[in-house]
Amino acid sequence: MRPKARRTTLADIAQAAGVSVATVSKVVNGRGDVAPHTRTRVQELLHQHHYLAPVFRHTKATDMPTIEVQFKGGLKSYVAETLEGIIDSAAESGASVVISKASLAPHWARDLVSAGRRAVIAITSVYTAAHLDELSRSGLPLVVLDPLHVPDSRVHSIGATNFTGGLAATRHLLSLGHHRIAYLGGPAAAVCNQARTHGYRAAMEADGMRVPDGYVRSGDFTYETGLLGATALLSLQEPPTAVFAGNDEIAAGVIETARTRGLRIPEDLSVVGFDDTSPARMTTPPLTTVRQPLREMGGTALRTALRLANGEKVESHHIELATELVVRASTAPPGEGASAPG
Rank of each mutant, 00 (worst) to 15 (best):
residue 1 M to N: 11
residue 1 M to R: 11
residue 2 R to E: 15
residue 4 K to P: 09
residue 4 K to I: 14
residue 7 R to W: 06
residue 9 T to F: 05
residue 11 A to T: 12
residue 11 A to F: 03
residue 11 A to I: 08
residue 14 A to E: 00
residue 15 Q to I: 02
residue 16 A to W: 00
residue 20 S to T: 11
residue 20 S to H: 06
residue 23 T to Y: 00
residue 25 S to K: 02
residue 26 K to E: 07
residue 26 K to V: 07
residue 27 V to T: 03
residue 30 G to I: 03
residue 34 V to C: 06
residue 35 A to V: 11
residue 37 H to K: 13
residue 38 T to M: 10
residue 40 T to M: 13
residue 46 L to N: 00
residue 47 H to D: 15
residue 50 H to D: 15
residue 53 A to Q: 14
residue 54 P to G: 04
residue 54 P to M: 04
residue 56 F to P: 04
residue 59 T to K: 10
residue 60 K to D: 14
residue 69 V to D: 02
residue 70 Q to S: 13
residue 71 F to E: 06
residue 72 K to G: 14
residue 73 G to M: 07
residue 81 E to D: 12
residue 86 I to Y: 06
residue 88 D to I: 07
residue 89 S to D: 14
residue 93 S to Y: 07
residue 99 I to C: 08
residue 100 S to K: 12
residue 102 A to G: 03
residue 103 S to E: 14
residue 103 S to K: 10
residue 109 A to F: 08
residue 112 L to I: 01
residue 113 V to P: 03
residue 113 V to E: 01
residue 116 G to R: 02
residue 116 G to I: 06
residue 120 V to L: 15
residue 121 I to H: 03
residue 122 A to F: 10
residue 123 I to D: 06
residue 125 S to L: 07
residue 126 V to I: 13
residue 141 P to G: 03
residue 144 V to W: 05
residue 146 D to E: 15
residue 148 L to V: 09
residue 154 R to T: 08
residue 158 I to W: 05
residue 159 G to R: 04
residue 159 G to D: 14
residue 161 T to H: 11
residue 162 N to A: 14
residue 162 N to Q: 14
residue 166 G to R: 02
residue 168 A to H: 14
residue 171 R to L: 13
residue 172 H to A: 09
residue 174 L to Q: 11
residue 175 S to T: 13
residue 175 S to A: 15
residue 176 L to C: 08
residue 177 G to T: 06
residue 183 Y to I: 09
residue 184 L to C: 01
residue 185 G to L: 10
residue 185 G to H: 08
residue 187 P to A: 11
residue 188 A to M: 10
residue 188 A to I: 11
residue 189 A to K: 09
residue 189 A to G: 10
residue 190 A to F: 12
residue 192 C to V: 12
residue 193 N to K: 01
residue 195 A to Y: 00
residue 202 A to K: 09
residue 207 D to T: 10
residue 208 G to P: 11
residue 208 G to R: 10
residue 209 M to E: 15
residue 210 R to V: 14
residue 211 V to G: 06
residue 212 P to S: 12
residue 215 Y to G: 08
residue 216 V to I: 15
residue 218 S to D: 13
residue 219 G to H: 01
residue 227 L to Y: 00
residue 230 A to M: 02
residue 230 A to K: 01
residue 234 L to A: 07
residue 236 L to W: 10
residue 239 P to H: 07
residue 240 P to Y: 09
residue 243 V to Y: 00
residue 243 V to I: 15
residue 245 A to S: 04
residue 246 G to S: 07
residue 248 D to L: 04
residue 248 D to N: 06
residue 252 A to T: 06
residue 256 E to N: 05
residue 256 E to L: 04
residue 257 T to F: 03
residue 259 R to T: 11
residue 267 E to G: 06
residue 274 F to P: 01
residue 275 D to Q: 09
residue 283 T to V: 08
residue 284 T to M: 12
residue 287 L to G: 02
residue 292 Q to P: 05
residue 293 P to F: 02
residue 293 P to W: 02
residue 296 E to L: 11
residue 296 E to M: 07
residue 298 G to F: 08
residue 306 L to M: 09
residue 306 L to G: 05
residue 308 L to Y: 06
residue 308 L to C: 05
residue 309 A to W: 07
residue 310 N to C: 05
residue 310 N to V: 00
residue 311 G to I: 05
residue 312 E to T: 02
residue 315 E to T: 13
residue 315 E to A: 15
residue 316 S to G: 04
residue 318 H to V: 10
residue 322 A to C: 05
residue 324 E to G: 03
residue 325 L to Y: 09
residue 328 R to K: 13
residue 333 P to H: 07
residue 334 P to W: 02
residue 334 P to H: 05
residue 340 A to I: 12
